[in-house]
């Protein structure tokens, strides 16, 4: 079984984990993945993956619709100014 690199996965998921959490998560996730190992033994040659139940997405007419007002949407924003979301400086970020 491939080992799970919790630190890397947490970085990808944009979630901070401290060392203690990292160890706990590694244990829990390894146990879960181990339990799922049985899937490997199922023959899926020539089986198409099933991602959803529709062969075709229905299309609607391309009509203009009333949308929510900016001020309505900004009511739930944790920090905003002049109609914009406020975030830390990004220039120079990697």
């Amino acid at each position: 079984m491939k080992e799970i690199d919790v630190k890397k996965v947490a970085e990808l998921a944009r979630i901070n984990v401290n060392q203690e959490q990292e160890a706990e998560l590694k244990l829990a996730l390894t146990q879960i993945l181990k339990h799922f190992e049985g899937l490997k033994n199922v023959n899926t040659d020539e089986v198409e993956p099933l991602f959803h139940f529709q062969d075709q997405m229905p299309l609607r007419e391309d009509l203009a619709e009333e949308a929510l007002k900016q001020e309505e949407l900004l009511k739930n924003a944790p920090n905003h100014v002049d109609g914009c979301f406020r975030i830390p400086k990004v220039i120079g970020d990697h």
Binding site: L39, K40, V42, T44, V47, E48, P49, L50, F51
Partner: peptide, 10 residues
């Protein structure tokens, strides 16, 4: 993920 989706079909 893909393996699981194939088994989902089965």
């Amino acid at each position: 993920f893909q393996k699981a989706a194939r088994i989902r079909r089965l």
